[in-house]
Simulated scan of single mutants.
Amino acid sequence: MQIKRPFFVFNPKSYLYGEELLRMAKRADELAGQYPECTVLVTTPFADIANIANNTSHIIVTAQHLDGITPGRGIGHVLPESIYYAGARATFLNHAEKPMALADLAQAMKRAQELGIKTIVCADSVAEAQAIAMLKADVILCEPTELIGTGQTSDQSYIEQTNAAIKAVDPNILTMQAAGIASAEDVYRTIKLGADGTGCTSGITNADSPIQMLEDMIVALNQAYQEEK
């Protein structure tokens, strides 16, 4: 599967697992089928990857992390082949909750690319985003660490500056802006400001109706995209 603009990542972290996560993933899958011009990704804990992949067909099942190891030694690490076999076709890397040294990140990206696993790599500054762009990430998530989970989105200048910095290195890299996304209006605004994609965690998991919020956000994503055409 290819990630294309516009895309939305539902990233429930460790808030959801098992049957509740499967229920949300199935709804995301239905919405991805309903809006085929939008790419929808759902991250899952490692133990849930196979269950989600086996019960969906339109979303891109996404791992929370992988390590740059090859089959052999590496107990406790995440083998890229294992998540690919389970059904993951994308992975987050260098999230603020799972930061990586540059050498480890580069090796993890290399292994993901060898297997055809798309990389969504997090950067918390313009300089870091440019460095990651040089490593040929598929998607760069530009997310100031201090805004994660606050409900406060990145301002227009930050979004425009990071988008421009990444595209100057490689125009084919997709930019994701997701800091503080808490409503469908935030999703609409972020795409209108030029981001290729966005995503959400607590704005969905903590909503009165998580499924309704997920739907509202994907509808807003599609609306912003359709208005650009």
Rank of each mutant, 00 (worst) to 15 (best):
Q2I: 12
K4A: 12
P6N: 07
P6W: 11
F8A: 03
V9D: 00
Y15D: 13
L16Q: 05
E19A: 12
A28G: 14
A28I: 08
A28M: 08
D29T: 01
E30N: 06
L31R: 02
L31Q: 06
L31N: 05
E37Q: 08
T39K: 06
T39I: 08
L41A: 03
V42S: 01
T44C: 15
P45H: 09
F46H: 13
I49A: 06
A50R: 15
N51V: 15
I52H: 00
N54H: 11
N54K: 14
N55T: 10
T56G: 03
H58E: 14
H58D: 10
H58T: 12
I60G: 06
T62P: 07
A63G: 11
L66Q: 03
D67E: 11
D67Y: 03
T70M: 12
P71N: 11
R73K: 13
H77A: 11
H77F: 11
V78I: 15
L79P: 08
L79E: 13
I83S: 00
Y84F: 13
Y84E: 07
A90T: 09
F92P: 04
F92E: 10
F92G: 00
N94A: 05
H95N: 01
A96C: 10
E97S: 14
K98L: 08
M100I: 02
A101W: 05
A103V: 13
L105S: 02
A106T: 05
Q107I: 11
A108R: 04
R111Q: 14
A112E: 00
Q113I: 01
E114P: 06
V121F: 13
C122V: 13
C122A: 15
A127E: 15
E128S: 14
A129S: 11
Q130C: 11
Q130W: 01
A133Y: 08
K136T: 10
K136P: 07
I140F: 00
I140T: 08
T145Y: 09
L147M: 07
G149R: 00
Q152M: 12
S154H: 04
Y158M: 04
T162P: 05
N163P: 00
K167S: 04
A168G: 02
A168N: 14
N172E: 14
I173K: 02
L174Q: 12
M176C: 15
A179W: 02
A179Q: 01
G180P: 13
G180S: 10
A182R: 15
S183C: 06
A184G: 15
Y188L: 13
T190K: 05
T190V: 13
G194T: 04
D196T: 07
D196E: 08
G199F: 04
G199T: 01
G199Y: 07
C200Q: 06
T201A: 15
S202L: 09
S202P: 00
S202F: 08
G203H: 01
A207G: 04
A207D: 11
D208W: 02
D208M: 07
P210G: 07
I211V: 14
M213W: 01
L214P: 10
M217T: 04
I218S: 01
V219Y: 00
N222T: 09
Q223G: 00
A224I: 12
E227C: 09
E228R: 13
K229L: 14
